[in-house]
C-alpha cells in the first residue's frame, strides 16, 4: 500500500523535497482561503454554505475571462474576488436568507439547487470543456533555486498572497468596527437590530466577504489548475475537512489544518497515491472521535 522506496528516493533528493513541500503549501494555502470563507460564514450565521464551492468555481472562471481581456493577472484575481462576492450577495439576499432559522433540510436543498444552476450556467457561458489559463505573463520569470530544487516565482506569490488575505480576513473580524458589529450579531441579532444597525446589510456583506475569499482562491488557482464545471465540489469537501480538523469558526485552526492537509496530499501523491483521500478522511474521523470541537475550535458540535 505504501511505496516506501519512492518516499525514500524523494527524501534523499533536495529537489524532490522542495517540489513536494511547495506543492503541498500551494494546495494547503488555497484550501486555507476557501476554508476561512466557510468558517467565517459559519461563525456568524451558524450556517454551512454547501454552495461554497460554486463561488470558488466562479472566481476561477471570472478571472479566466478577465485575464483573457486585460492580460493582467492581478486585475484578473481582483475581478475573480469581486465576481464571487457579488454573486454571494445575490445568493444571500434572494435565496439563503429566506431559509435562515429553518431546518437544515431546506438550507441543504437551496444550496443543492444553486450548485446545479451554477454548474449549468458555467457550461452555458464557458462550455463544458476543460479550460486552462496558463502561467500569466507577469510570472514568466526564471525559477528560484533552492536546495537543488526550482521554485517558480508564481508559486511563492500564491502562497504569500493566500496567507496574507486569509489572516487579513481574520483581523477584519477581530479588530475592526465592522468585525465587532458582526460578532455582536452572532451573539444577539435582535439586540443589535434594536440599536439601529441594519443587520441584513451586515449579513449580506459578511456573506460577500466569505464568498470573495472562495472566489479569490479560485482566481489565484486558475493558472495552476484546469477549470471545469463542477470543480467546486472537491474543494468544498476538502475545505470542510479542514474546518472540522481545525475547529469550526477558527481561522488559525483552518490555517494549521490546511497546512497539514496540503502536505499530506503532497507526500501522499508519492508515498500512497491510492490512499490520499483515505488518509484525509481518516484524520477527520480521528479528530471527530477524540476532539469533536476540532484542534483549535470552540463548541457546538454535539447535538
Amino acid at each position: 500500500m505504501i511505496e516506501f522506496e519512492a518516499l525514500a528516493n524523494c527524501a534523499s533528493s533536495g529537489a524532490c523535497i522542495v517540489n513536494q513541500v511547495t506543492s503541498g503549501l500551494i494546495i494547503g494555502m488555497l484550501l486555507f482561503l476557501v476554508a476561512s470563507g466557510l468558517t467565517l460564514i459559519f461563525g456568524v450565521l451558524n450556517i454551512i454554505n454547501f454552495a461554497h464551492g460554486s463561488f470558488y468555481m466562479m472566481g476561477a472562471y471570472v478571472a479566466f475571462t478577465a485575464y483573457a481581456l486585460t492580460g493582467n493577472y492581478f486585475i484578473a484575481a481582483i475581478f475573480g474576488a469581486i465576481g464571487a462576492g457579488l454573486l454571494g450577495v445575490f445568493f444571500e439576499r434572494f435565496i439563503i436568507s429566506r431559509v435562515y432559522g429553518q431546518n437544515v433540510l431546506l438550507q441543504l436543498l437551496v444550496c443543492y439547487a444553486f450548485i446545479l444552476i451554477m454548474d449549468d450556467v458555467v457550461k452555458l457561458v464557458w462550455g463544458a470543456e476543460y479550460l486552462a489559463m496558463g502561467i500569466p505573463d507577469e510570472f514568466r520569470l526564471a525559477p528560484i533555486r533552492l536546495f537543488g530544487g526550482f521554485i517558480p516565482p508564481l508559486y511563492i506569490f500564491l502562497i504569500i498572497t493566500a496567507v496574507v488575505i486569509g489572516f487579513g480576513a481574520m483581523l477584519l473580524i477581530a479588530k475592526t468596527r465592522f468585525g465587532s458589529i458582526v460578532r455582536a450579531i452572532a451573539e444577539n441579532p435582535s439586540m443589535v437590530g434594536a440599536l439601529g444597525i441594519r443587520v441584513p446589510l451586515y449579513l449580506a456583506l459578511l456573506f460577500a466577504i466569505g464568498c470573495a475569499l472562495a472566489g479569490v482562491a479560485g482566481a489565484l488557482a486558475a493558472p495552476v489548475r484546469s477549470l471545469t464545471p463542477g470543480m467546486g465540489l472537491g474543494i468544498l469537501v476538502e475545505s470542510f475537512i479542514v474546518t472540522v480538523i481545525g475547529g469550526m469558526g477558527s481561522i488559525p485552526g483552518a490555517f494549521f489544518a490546511a497546512l497539514i492537509l496540503g502536505l499530506t496530499r503532497a507526500v501522499g501523491s508519492i508515498g500512497f497515491p491510492l490512499f490520499v483521500d483515505g488518509a484525509m478522511f481518516m484524520m477527520m474521523a480521528l479528530v471527530l472521535i477524540f476532539k469533536p470541537t476540532g484542534l483549535l475550535g470552540g463548541g457546538g458540535v454535539k447535538r
Binding site: N103, V104, F240, V244, P292, V301, K302, R303
Partner: peptide, 10 residues
Amino acid sequence: RLNEIYFAFL
C-alpha cells in the same frame, strides 16, 4: 453524535 449541520456535512 454530531449536531445536524455537522451530520449533514460529514
